[in-house]
Amino acid sequence: MSNLPEFITIQNVQKYISNRMVLDIDELVVYQSECVVVHGPNGSGKSTLLKILAGLMTPDSGVATTNGVVRPWRQAIREFRANAVYLHQTPYLFDRSVEDNIAYGLRFRNRSQSVLFSEVQSAMEWAGLSHLAKRNARDLSGGEKQRVALTRARILEPKLLLLDEPTAAMDRKSRKQTFSLIRDLASGGNAVYIATHEAADLYQPDRVIQLDYGKLVV
């Protein structure tokens, strides 16, 4: 139990892929503003859990409660999508400049061009990406791409940020920079879920949950 207010609760969630059960969760409560590390071996259902919380995947069964209201999944998915941003292990950056990538999600919100520009500039400064603003995002290194993806998510100020193996296959310097950005994000008031093989301490989480064969074991 946490003292933080509940944001999302999922219960009796099951997900099958190719007739194999990949997720079977009795109950998981996502609290507002908490940082959670999701541990588990490959194939334990970490990505599936994060994608369900992002509204990118629909479970085969289960109940979702958001802000204290039990909702049908179709409606819950809309809530999840409106509040959560999911980052893939290998982030997909669109074939356009770094600043255009970062501005992508903001364009769907009502922002004047000047406000949008200034938000993008300050987000790039936060991530140390200002010198790469005009570069095509596809030409960046792995670490730089992850920073662009984090910045692109952060600028939307999601209530729940879901990071799937954010530092996998990174060199030491990039990992250090990425850890620093994630810790900064986690202290910013939004809930952050990080699926990782790394030692949980690196993220200074509020709690750690363990998945094994799709089941929560902690």
């Binding site: 999911y86 074939d95 992508y104 999600g105």
Partner: peptide
């Protein structure tokens, strides 16, 4: 194009049609 392109567009707030236009540009 990787499925993650579609999921990225959607998770960043694109409607189905906006996501389609994004992928069409890709």
């Amino acid at each position: 194009v990787d499925l993650s392109a579609w999921q990225t567009a959607r998770t960043l707030g694109a409607s189905i049609f906006r996501a389609m236009f994004t992928i069409m540009r890709e």
